[in-house]
């Protein structure tokens, strides 16, 4: 196994949990994920019968990740870049144990806040507070831990009285502020921040960046999925680039961003340029 980021790893002085035998936070070995999705968006009896009549198969395979391997040492803040549909979200869902890998093996040392934030707002009729509490409880926190954090989250997200209103009344900026606040307040060992969280006004973005810097000193590892290449360079000390499910490059953020940018310039799909 190569350990490309070993030189980047810092002394995990702030880590409370005992260190594992090896200093690896996450190890991904030859992982492939193949979705078997149905043709139709919403499967119904009618389409099932029609399909049966035509002798078609119900499933179609989508290779979201192809034989991806990498290691993340403790103390790494890993940027994940790539075009839409590159498999970034699949990768972090697989790391979070939501999607089982089709082949290969994943080892995660620590508790992951697996995209907890994106689950917030799953029921738009419930209030912000209720959504936060439910997300925390589903993630395995106790009622008391959740109540303590709910207050901090409300304060950090600066939602004020909106916390007690149904999520459906929120603006998209307010939603993403809440989502970000939730993901950074659950004290996971391994933090995952998805690009969807990058919305919010300039003032909040600055606050979010400060919070992430603060967390990098306490979390064991951090994953940042982002289309904002500048923030990957700024926040991360390692990066990987995924393209159509394959791991194209891993290394320092500068190298990876440069490679990715060059790749976009020399061609491929025009839509990817919007992401820059």
């Amino acid at each position: 196994m190569s350990s490309l980021f070993a030189s980047e790893s810092r002394a995990p002085d702030a880590v409370a949990a005992p260190l594992p035998v090896d200093d690896v936070a996450v190890r991904v070995q030859n992982v492939s994920v193949t979705y078997r999705t149905t043709f139709e968006r919403t499967p119904t009896f009618k389409t099932a019968v029609v399909r049966l009549g035509r002798g078609e198969r119900a499933v179609r395979e989508v290779q979201a990740l192809k034989n991806v391997s990498f290691e993340v040492p403790v103390g790494t803040s890993l940027g994940i870049v790539g075009a839409n549909g590159a498999g970034k979200s699949t990768l972090i869902r697989t790391l979070g144990g939501i999607l089982p890998p089709t082949s290969g093996r994943i080892e995660v040392h620590g508790r992951i806040s697996a995209l907890l934030a994106l689950g917030v707002g799953f029921n738009p009729n419930l209030s912000g507070t209720e959504n936060v509490v439910l997300g925390g409880l589903a993630n395995g926190l106790t009622r008391r831990q959740v109540d303590e954090r709910a207050h901090d989250i409300a304060e950090f997200a600066e939602l004020g009285d909106f916390m007690d209103l149904p999520i459906r009344t929120y603006s998209s900026g307010m939603r993403s502020r809440l989502a970000f606040a939730v993901s950074v307040h659950m004290d996971p060992d391994i933090l995952m921040i998805d690009e969807a969280l990058s919305a919010g006004d300039a003032k909040f973005k600055k606050k979010a960046a400060e919070k992430m810097h603060e967390l990098m000193t306490t979390a064991r590892a951090m994953f940042l999925v982002s289309h904002a290449l500048a923030s990957v360079k700024e926040m991360c000390n390692a990066a990987i680039w995924l393209h159509k499910g394959e791991l194209m490059l891993q290394g320092s953020p500068e190298e990876v961003v440069a490679g990715y940018t060059k790749f976009l310039e020399v061609g491929e799909d025009a839509f990817s340029l919007e992401d820059l």
Binding site: A17, P20, T94, L95, G97, P100, P101, T102, S103, G104, R105, I106, E107, V108, H109, G110, R111, I112, G140
Partner: peptide
């Protein structure tokens, strides 16, 4: 790592995900 993970279940320090 697998041994440790299998002993501790969901909320463990080490989780292993395999097909």
């Amino acid at each position: 790592a697998v041994d440790r993970a299998s002993k501790s279940g969901y909320l463990s320090d080490v989780q292993v995900y395999e097909p």
